[in-house]
Design a protein around this nucleic acid. Structure first.
Lengths: 194, 194, 194, 194
DNA sequence: AATGAATGAGGATTCATTCAT
DNA sequence: TATGAATGAATCCTCATTCAT
């Protein structure tokens, strides 16, 4: 989906508004005010409010490469995590919205979109977990579908807290601590023995 | 905080509405309709909408005993987790709201309430982690403040997914799987020991 | 009209409320709150809000003797003025309402009541002016119906300003200054010559 | 303050409504109905009800020249009075509202505005009274601050009665009678003179 | 004599959206 | 491409009043 410059401005304004005050704070009037234009002007660029929200949601996917490049297994998982942290760091409002599917979940129009994204990412990560286990990078006594919440639950919580705290701590540093701990915990039993 | 029967009905209706369609779906009109009364009737029982939301948020705390009974360390953490799962199972709408602080975060009136609760629970869990480490129940090479997201990130994610899926899987069973995995991962590296 | 003790309390509360915040501030809820009772309780004592307002308006007449006692002419006018100042001093909220017929004028139910009172007082004063002129107490080159606004316009303005200022100055003293000035101005031309 | 055509229509409608039924009668719905538009349409032209009332109050000042032109002393006072009568005659609803500060007094937002206006006019008149006394146009045995209520109390009462009576008499004619009487009463006591 | 619960009517305001210009 | 004006539907909330207790 390619957006015009104006469309990008609108989506960015919408994101900031949501980050600032939740979905309730996202009104056409406020978007227009943020851009310094009148409300009807927005309708030149989007068919309506939901189109804006949809563009915003789809924008989350941007910057998430479809494939993990040449990395595989544990490395691919870590890269994925680090990319999310990077994304949040670069666009702090995103951090407040990124993992708050419930914001959009209520509207059936958006919940499908969100679910599809979530499932896609999940499937990808599960494949990587399986590869990692096979490669002996991580312990194999935990099912991949359990590994997913084990790894991404903490990541989401961390990003959310960072967003809600207004970016009071160093997200990337804390993220690395988390990854280190996870690495330790997921290490194959033999390694523990060294 | 003791609520009258009618107040409890109102709060329950409000919870259902939020679970159904987010905060946006929580309107006085809809609460009234759910109870089969007129809107103004609600104002006999609560001073306004925010009082209802506040009562709802405070209600989360109910059923969460202040202290962990006689259990300590790891057992206390597990009990806390199981209590949350039980709470969600008993009151499914709660599962959709319980860990969605962002729903209320936008309103400064509620965000304080939520934060206080969160911090209280977190402090309690961190103390339990520290005790568990000291008792040798869990590994001691991970700081308690990292342990917290490591354990509760997955729990939150699981509960949220259960809520959003409409309770399609067995929350308690999946929760036990999660706890089992966490127990494994957090186990002290015996072969490594001293 | 004889009111019970409770009715008097209600009317007094109503007067205070109006003085405090205008007719808009007069609600059954606030009257009830001021008396520490529930709203329905008020309906035991008055048939409704308008009955309360009517009682209040009629109360203005209380303390205004039907006849000027044994005084006549200028003295009767002065007595009437002094009585009004006394009434206001004794019951400051009254000062904010006393001469604000427009407060009630809008409701046809009350405007009649007010008009009748006003006309009655006016007729009485005009008779006194005529007597005063005949007695040679005041100049006779000004028609009584013009004398009325000339004397009571200033009195009303004074009382109103006192009420609105929160009683910041000495109403009676200023009233005497006013009466003195009026006496001078109304003195028969011959007197001026002395 | 320059108002658009629509804004002027709205303010005029508001004035009529207040004149008709007091502040209680001033509702957005009724203003809208009077203009034949929907309620929300009003919000394109004013930010809210209080903005309308404020514009209305400020409008009172319009047509009141800041300075008394080239007239001074007694002439300036008379001009001011005649201007007020003219204003009322031209816009009868204004007559019912013009001197009813208590209508707005309850709302602190408006009472300040009204007081400022009143004080400004009063100061101006007092200066003119002082000048008149110095010029020997009026007697000097009455203090200017007493002269003010003496002159404007009657004027206000007259205008109010005219407004409340629905314009049943000739305001300007009665006003001239009043001015004539005041002129007589305020005339310096020539025979008394030094 | 008093209350708790309820209500229909109405209050101001905000929303996303449309339309003529 | 943008706007000013407008709107129907919805928002929360307050009003005076009634009724069973």
């Amino acid at each position: 989906m390619i957006l015009t410059a104006r469309q990008n401005e609108i989506v960015a304004a919408a994101l900031t508004l949501i980050a600032d005050g939740g979905i309730q704070n996202l009104t056409m009037k406020k978007i227009a005010a943020k851009l310094g234009v009148s409300e009807p002007a927005l309708y030149r660029h989007f068919n309506g409010k939901s189109e804006i929200v949809k563009a915003l949601i789809k924008g989350f996917d941007e910057g998430i490469p479809e494939h993990s490049g040449d990395s595989r297994g544990l490395a691919a998982v870590k890269t994925f995590v680090r990319d999310r942290l990077q994304q949040a760091t670069e666009n702090p409002p995103l951090a407040r919205v990124m993992f708050s599917e419930e914001l959009f979940m209520d509207d059936p129009e958006f919940s499908g979109l969100c679910m599809e994204m979530r499932h896609r990412h999940r499937a990808r990560m599960c494949a990587d977990f399986a590869a990692a286990a096979e490669l002996g990078e991580i312990r194999s006594d935990i099912a991949p579908e359990i590994l997913f919440p084990l790894v991404f639950g903490p990541v989401r919580l961390l990003v959310k807290q960072w967003g809600m705290s207004g970016g009071i701590f160093d997200l990337k540093a804390k993220g690395e601590e988390l990854l280190a701990a996870l690495t330790k915990m997921l290490a194959p039993a033999e390694r523990n023995a060294r």
